[in-house]
Simulated assay, not measured.
Amino acid sequence: MATRAIVFAHLISGCFAVKIDTTDTLSTSITTDTLTDTLTDTLPTTITTPTTIEPTDTGPTTIEPTDTLPTTITTPTTIDPTDTDATITDPTFTTIFTDPTVTSVTVTVTTEPPSDCGNGLVEDGEECDDGNSSDTDECPTTCKTAVCGDGFVRAGVEVCDDKLNDNSYEGCAPGCSALGPRCGDNVLQADEGELCDDGNQTAGDGCNACLTENLPGECGQAVALPQPGRNVASQVEEVECDLDLPVEGQWSRFVGSAGKRMPTAAPPQFSCGTHAPGWLNGSEPAPADGVVAREVCFHWEDETCHFKVPIAVQNCGPFIMYRLPTPPTCALRYCGVD
């Protein structure tokens, strides 16, 4: 009887099964055929890489597979040098600055007004909200109730408000009710750098801007720098910057609580109401020297001359004046000393 074997091939999920009729005699020689799994997997032709899009991005949301994305995005913490509410308080607090002033600094920054300040509704974090942009009424644009010392002059209520209101020269009296002593009040304040005070600003009458008109060169045109915080010995903690000095080429002189002249030795960092205090790197000229070239250094990162700018200096006799350029960055400030 002929040997008979029936072989069934069946693909089950990629597996090969053989069924043999057990009633027949199995041949001693089996030829194994190679079977090809013809099952075709269906794969997506496009691989999409999830991408995080910043809310402010306006560009396309698709990124090419060949694009290389950074794995870490570092956002620097920047202190706005024009923020007059920044206050130096604790030297152990560290804040990272962007170049060229990357370092540690101690500051307390006043919280910005709520984003909905000005909508006319008093909401969380607001003391008032009158829905307007006026800083001279009972509710300025900070949405905090107006008070003496907030830096805003309330119309019909306050005469002045310089935030200090300590009756300093060219400042404001306590209570914001009157101006402090100043040039033009018809009172000679020699300690504040006045050479005369005839109560007016009329040129040609022998006294102009509280300076006699017989001074040499441009001495009679020097602008006063009276800010108390400029003094090296000042305890004023507001962080200031001299980017808002008078226009380039303007002569300036220190008066009153700001001091009489620039220091000729480096003040400590964070003095003079700033981060990097400026000082005169050179000797003061004599009146007979006329205008001389000098250099101002700014003390920063433990380098007494980390930044420097060229200036002009003239000894006018009763005072010394300086032609001060805009500093290279913030927060840098020109300092005074008694």
Rank of each mutant, 00 (worst) to 15 (best):
M1Y: 11
V7S: 11
A9I: 14
L11A: 14
I12N: 14
L26N: 08
T31Q: 11
T45P: 00
I47K: 07
T51W: 05
T62K: 08
I63C: 03
L69W: 01
T72Y: 02
T72C: 01
I73F: 11
T74W: 00
T75I: 15
D80V: 10
I88A: 13
T92A: 13
T92H: 11
T94D: 13
E126K: 09
D129G: 03
D130I: 09
D135C: 02
D135R: 11
D137H: 06
E138W: 10
C143G: 04
C148P: 03
F152A: 12
E158V: 01
C160D: 08
E170K: 03
P174M: 02
P181D: 05
P181G: 04
C183F: 01
N186Y: 01
L188C: 09
G193M: 00
G193N: 01
G199D: 05
T202D: 12
G204M: 06
C207P: 01
C207T: 00
C210P: 04
L211P: 00
Q227I: 09
G229Q: 10
N231I: 09
A233M: 10
V239L: 15
Q250D: 12
G256P: 06
A258I: 05
G259A: 08
A265W: 04
A266C: 07
A276C: 09
N281P: 04
D289R: 07
A293F: 04
R294A: 15
V296N: 05
C297D: 13
C305S: 10
C305Q: 10
K308P: 00
N315P: 07
C316A: 10
M321Y: 10
P325R: 04
T326Y: 06
T326L: 11
R333D: 00
G336K: 06
